[in-house]
Computed example of a mutant assay.
Amino acid sequence: MVAGETSGDLLSGLLLDGLLRRWPDLQAYGIGGAMMQRRGFHALYSSERLAVHGYSFEVLLKLRDILKIRSALRSQLLQERPAVFVGVDAPDFNLGLERDLRAQGIKTVHFVCPSIWAWRPERIHKIRAAADHVLCLFPFEPALLAAQGIAATFVGHPLAQVIPEQPDKQAARQALGLAMDAPVLAVLPGSRRAEVQYIARPFLQATALLLQRLPQLQVLLPAVPALYDQLQALLSELGLSDRVQLLPGQSHTALAACDCTLIASGTATLEAALFKRPMVIGYHMHPISWRLMRRKQLQPWVGLPNILCQDFVVPELLQDRATPAALADAVQQWLTPEAAPQVAAVQDRFAALHQSLLRDTSTLAAQAIETLIYA
């Protein structure tokens, strides 16, 4: 298995739950993170090694290391010939590896259909060459792939199982020592180092503005372990160390506790939607990466909740529009008493979205992999 980034590690851990129920003596190895290793996964390399930000410019800076890892892993897998290879997301890394393995007779599964319906539609040809089977998180994807001759199964989104349909805000606030009667903002600037480089500063500058306007505001900042010190230093630089609660991980607790979240575009926006939280989606990347990405974009939305709802349910402030003042204004609109009807409407949309994604993901995925292995 190969999983890139924190979100891929989470998905892989849930997939391993289903595989281990079917095969208790399963041996799984490759590239992964902490969630996978807790299930006994042997990580030859950390998923952090694959974490990059942007479309091409930042990738080039790490390209030698990434290609070296992929070459070494390819050689090992071709020699050891596992029963199946599962590439979890990270399509730029995994699809090429899957193609080479499949050409040599190793069965391949790609978990998470690349977002060909949102951007880079030419990837369909790479998927067809790479994957014997695709495990899809969204219900419309298998038919799209089948039309291109690619076998696929909708397994639901595992986060829809992990996140309760009715999150307990009071319990989460108690766990974090927060006041019950004051508003709470969760700030999630991403889980990759380069994301934090581009996004964390304007997010926290917006937070500083909000704290001036709303003195009772309580602010949570979950941080993955690799980025904790970086965010702590930024809080100190901006004079926010005493006003922002920096959390070691605990993003789900923060989302359960908050009234609103200021959040970087990515999987975390879907998590926030499943927690039924209004949000402001922001993103910023290197200008070269931004221009390349925009040329490939097929839909007017970038945030997953808006894409899945096919509507601007929540605001998106991207690139030059993601200024501290604009971000603060957009967040403040969710926190006013007058916003109550809009908040309720968003919660209803997200509740329906949750239902559409709710399946026994780990079992369905394991069954699809078993069928492929014994075909």
Rank of each mutant, 00 (worst) to 15 (best):
A3R: 11
E5P: 02
D9Q: 11
L10I: 14
L16T: 00
L19I: 00
L20Q: 10
L20F: 02
Y29L: 06
G30T: 04
G32T: 11
A34L: 15
A43N: 09
L44Y: 13
L44Q: 14
Y45W: 15
S47R: 04
S47G: 15
E48W: 07
A51T: 10
G54T: 03
E58L: 14
L61I: 01
I66Q: 09
I69K: 06
R74Q: 10
L78H: 06
E80V: 10
P82R: 15
P82H: 10
A83F: 12
V86Q: 12
A90V: 05
P91N: 04
G96L: 03
D100T: 00
L101I: 00
R102T: 00
H110Q: 12
F111Y: 15
W117P: 08
E122P: 00
H133L: 12
C136Y: 03
F138S: 01
F140N: 10
F140C: 08
P142N: 04
P142A: 07
L145M: 08
A151S: 15
V155W: 12
G156M: 14
H157C: 14
A160C: 11
Q161S: 14
D168E: 13
A171T: 08
A182W: 05
L185H: 04
L185A: 02
A194W: 07
R201L: 10
A206Q: 12
A208C: 09
R213T: 02
L214I: 09
P222T: 00
V224F: 01
L235K: 01
L238G: 03
L238A: 05
L240M: 05
Q245C: 01
L246A: 07
L247Y: 12
A257P: 08
C260L: 14
T261K: 05
A264N: 13
A264M: 11
A264D: 07
T267L: 09
A272L: 13
L274Q: 07
R277P: 00
R277I: 01
P278A: 07
M279Q: 09
I281W: 05
R291Y: 10
L292M: 14
R294W: 07
R295A: 15
L298N: 09
C309K: 13
Q310F: 09
V313F: 03
V314N: 06
V314W: 11
P315G: 04
D320N: 06
R321L: 09
A322C: 10
P324Q: 06
W334E: 09
P341I: 11
V346H: 09
R349W: 13
F350A: 03
L353E: 05
S362I: 00
T363I: 08
T363F: 13
A365K: 04
A365S: 12
A366I: 04
I369N: 02
I369A: 03
I373M: 14
I373H: 04
A375Q: 14
